[in-house]
Design a protein around this nucleic acid. Sequence first.
DNA 1: CCCAATTTGTTCGTATGTATA
DNA 2: TTATACATACGAACAAATTGG
Lengths: 273, 273
Amino acid sequence: MTWTNPTDPVHNRRMSIVRSPDPAPGFAPIAPDAAGMPLYRAVRRALLRSIEEGKLPPGAALPNETDLAAAFDVAVGTLRRAVDDLVAEHILVRRQGRGTFVATHTRDRFLFQFFHVERSDGLREAPAVELLSFERIRMDEDAAAALATRAGTPAFQIENRLKLQGTAVVHDRIVIPAALFRGLTEKRVRERPSTIYHLYQSEFGVTVVRARERLSAVAADRAIARALGVPPGVPVLQVRRTAIALGGRPVEYRVSTIVTTAHDYVNQLSRPS
Amino acid sequence: MTWTNPTDPVHNRRMSIVRSPDPAPGFAPIAPDAAGMPLYRAVRRALLRSIEEGKLPPGAALPNETDLAAAFDVAVGTLRRAVDDLVAEHILVRRQGRGTFVATHTRDRFLFQFFHVERSDGLREAPAVELLSFERIRMDEDAAAALATRAGTPAFQIENRLKLQGTAVVHDRIVIPAALFRGLTEKRVRERPSTIYHLYQSEFGVTVVRARERLSAVAADRAIARALGVPPGVPVLQVRRTAIALGGRPVEYRVSTIVTTAHDYVNQLSRPS
DNA sequence: CCCAATTTGTTCGTATGTATA
DNA sequence: TTATACATACGAACAAATTGG
């Protein structure tokens, strides 16, 4: 059984109608005006807030579009536009016939979105990660600046060596605030079943959604050179990454050092759609 | 005066209706089926073809959405979706209240899409370009491979030095096929009023739409070191770019060498929407 | 293997708001 | 002010993919 809904002539919105058991609990109608923000933006923010607050944990299925639109009191098209944006940001994933889900940090996603090294001939493969060290440290100036805190802030530092086709190519030094990752141990890092971003997400509720990278060429220092099996002083590519989590907070500072004798950092400037 | 259009129950498409003077000449209805491709994809391709064929030159205004949708015999929403995609690819530009236009290569676009160097403290500014040399050459293996042709193919080679905040930071060696740029002279390069991509577009009908870049760290050779005023052998960032034009053809191979003592190559991994 | 239910994907159409000239 | 064009929002119908019986 269906009704046709009377519409509010001012805002062109459906007027609220009582329904039997709420098909999308926890989603309140969007206020008609939110500082001149388009409705689909307000819906996007509401969804984002639900995800950030944990009401929609990673992997969770959203209510179907019809129910969710009804809960927000917007048209399906408006809801879809909001979801479109979140899908483009890799925060939601849609699967036709199945539903819409909060994105999880799979290996595929890591490779696609956050790993840019491939062999000079274009061969791409997942790196084999080897943990070199796990320490409690206090942040240096660089890490602190990137993480919007003060030098000396307690942190974990993880050093990894990444091999491609059997040869060491990348050295990662990862700095993460201890406050955000309470209870992290070397064991948990070493025995994580998937990527480290998956670990952040599944064990600490920290979902990395984007990152800024600054690249420069430097001479390999002794420690890096030894770790990567190259002579000290050879030019290596240094990538300083600040990873941003769901709330917009920087949560990881990472310095990747890449030997580019047989590999490159690749970047696509605009993809065909 | 308006009609309501009878619809084809099979494809849910409007049936053709004769109209007075064609409001969007040169745009034929899209065939209902194009290998299972969604209609909006077919519309996108039709628009792209019109642009590639020069029927919509850079800067040209498209017919308004209503007329264009009618010409293609699709709904406005379908047309808008096709245009959305081309806008995301920077091939079209929409301006509310004015119209939709074929994108031109402005300085702003170059900076946003194709120039990634900024000072270490985050300061971004447009580079001052200085032409160092202009030569007719034959392509080496690297350039030929990037441009999908054979070594020895006639080409132009342009060397530029880019200054930021008054200091030389980037050296560009640009290789472009002579066949695509007949009549190019040093004078035209030197006296171009805007970016070199604008020159390609306005003078040779070559519209760069995207690029692939491969980055590595190398030691500065003597020539580069002299051009950039650094000691030979210092680590520098080498960016090898293949630029792709509208038809999908590679049209430029560029090797940028960047001194990264006070500057970085910056990259955004996913932007918030 | 096929069918039915569910969910997203595509396409249609329309009305109104907002920016521009 | 008016006309035009894109932007937002509504609603509806059918297609396509997936899952479970």
